[in-house]
Design a protein around this nucleic acid. Structure first.
Lengths: 222, 222
DNA sequence: CGTCCGTTTGATACATTTCAATAACGGTGG
DNA sequence: CCACCGTTATTGAAATGTATCAAACGGACG
């Protein structure tokens, strides 16, 4: 489809908002304050009060949980357009960090919850449900898919989320992929080279992947 | 055990003050119709229209997803008091079955969504968020915990859910445990006998487990 | 041009799965 | 109450996928 790049992109750049319509909560745009964070900076930490909700304008955010010995599981990535930071209770159940430099919109939780907009609650609910759906798909992947299947489904999913062009400008490192997929960095790397050898994808640079046979890739997800 | 890379461990957290009252949605009780299903009977199937929401009165329900080759991942179990069947979209993303003979209350989705009760929406939201929280905890378990840690955390979680008495009358088979924990039935079985050998639990019959050292068990979850 | 960090590759170790057999339960009927 | 049976669970031995340990590579950058 698109020409493969001969050069690696210097830095993970702005990602395209996916074309799929998603529930938008206008109110965030209205009452939100712009927040910028640089690469690897924390946005909120586990245990803190969950007083704000965020929308990604630029960059990518990771949300993760830690085990006592430092093992990390990334629950989800958020790309431009996504809203995150809604919590079931009063405090954060996970930590959020900037994967790349990010620009966010932050709105006080209370404002959203008590909004007079009759649709706001419904939209917030839709957002929470969308997260739930993603989380349950993730559960299936982690519980029952092999390394190859995990990587394949990750690529397919990411491509779709970023607006499918058959080309993924990977916004995240191998370590982040590994921690999202429940694998090690070595296994992710090996799997990617295998997928390249089998002609499913083409790697160029560290952060750029062409999906050469998207249909076959989707098959691989089982 | 997957030690991918070491990250700073989270600061010692307070042991869950998780006495979060189970959000109840009275309206289900008011407009709900009683439904009975016997063991292994389907309650709803993936792809069907998601027109009803259920509350468990008696018995246990499992909700799962399948891969094309039949591998199964149980997303969650629902015990008496739990509400399930809320969906992000118009149709079911998973299949629900009766683990044992069950009695359910079923309420039309539309009734709930359009309820004039100002609190109903909020409670529904709380329910969805509770599911999300559980799902993300599950993600951590599947992605980063060893077999022993998975089984231990399952037992601790289940005991708490059923009303912690240090004794779990297991409502589910080894196969269901395995499919929830992303393991095989053999591994679950071996792990349970090890936990018995180490004095953490005592098995009696197939469906009855005593948590002999709950604190130690909780430690095992990492 | 050399350093540094992230990635790839290689060799080996290990946890869990797989395959196969045995054992324990739970219900049924004699 | 006991013997039988099918089902579910346990145990064992071997195979396998992924992790671990260790080293080499490569691009980005000063």
């Amino acid at each position: 489809m698109s020409m493969s790049h001969t050069f690696a992109a210097p830095e993970p750049r702005v990602m395209f908002p996916r074309t799929v319509a998603r529930p938008s909560v206008e109110i965030i745009r209205m009452v939100g304050a712009t927040v910028k964070k640089s690469r690897d900076q924390e946005i909120f930490g586990e245990g803190e009060p969950a007083d704000r909700v965020f929308q990604v304008l630029k960059g990518v955010v990771r949300c993760f949980k830690l085990l006592s010995d430092g093992r990390r599981q990334i629950c989800d990535f958020y790309v431009p357009g996504d809203i995150f930071g809604l919590e079931p209770g009063l405090d954060r159940r996970a930590t959020a960090e900037a994967v790349s430099d990010v620009v966010l919109l932050a709105a006080p939780r209370a404002t959203l919850m008590e909004s007079s907009d009759p649709d706001a609650a419904r939209r917030l609910w839709a957002l929470a449900m969308a997260d739930l759906r993603r989380s349950q798909d993730h559960t299936l992947t982690l519980g029952r898919r092999s390394a190859t299947e995990r990587v394949a489904s990750f690529l397919v999913d990411l491509a779709e989320r970023l607006g499918d062009t058959g080309h993924v400008e990977l916004p995240i490192s191998r370590q982040d992929m590994a921690d999202y997929l429940g694998l090690t960095i070595e296994t992710v790397s090996r799997t990617l080279t295998q997928l390249q050898a089998s002609g499913h994808i083409a790697l160029s640079g560290r952060r750029s992947i062409d999906l050469r046979r998207p249909a076959a890739l989707a098959e691989l997800c089982a």
